[in-house]
Amino acid sequence: MLRLEGIDAFYGDLQALYDVSLEVEQGRVFALVGANAAGKSTTLRVISGLVTPRRGRVVLDGQDLTTVPAHARVDLGVVQVPEGRRLFPFMSVTENLLLGAHTPRARAERDATLKYVYTLFPVLAERRGQLAGSLSGGEQQMCAIGRALMARPRVLMLDEPTLGLAPVLVKRIFDTVRTINADGMTIMLVEQNVRQALTLAQRAAVLESGHLVLHGQGAALLADERLKRAYLGM
């Protein structure tokens, strides 16, 4: 459904991605793992259009997105929950969620989606009038996922959604990802919790210093000796 073909990406003279190719299949969870500064966030930024690759293509259902501006990709269904949540801190939970439904396609279904988000995260309904910046870390992450869902994604990208959360909340977020996926959402998950991510994902890839070094079935990667040594401390 979503394909990267031979992506080279740069920040100034610094090359962050080298010839990265991968494919996210419809209805599946794809996990992208790797150490700090491996280029995981850059990969998502390339897909969202915040970083323009110097070489290569981003293709969604056969449509080349390379020349589509970032904001227009959201209307095509490419939606990202960025690293660090990036909520609008001085707006209420409700305002943040409503901002998620900005594109005409999303706005048409706004009320129904809002109901879905509140069912998924009842705590957001309780805190609807509170400023997003004053939520706890876990609530902020839920709000960020809720806001992205409001955009009616066809593929939802999550950049380290469990970063800095207590174990019980990490489990809560992984459960949510599983639920959303079971409801039919295609998901691309960037994670540092390698074991949990690979258990959840049908397909996965490992980035190392901008190179895609491994990719395959999630379970198969989990059993890979190199990966075990590098990321699971075994």
Partner: peptide, 24 residues
């Protein structure tokens, strides 16, 4: 208004606004 909200969002976090599909 929605447009007012979109303007405030763009001021608070431009990249996040773009990721919501907002044409900044």
């Amino acid at each position: 208004t929605h447009t007012g909200r979109v303007m405030r969002a763009t001021a608070q976090d431009r990249d996040a606004a773009i990721l919501m599909g907002i044409d900044t």
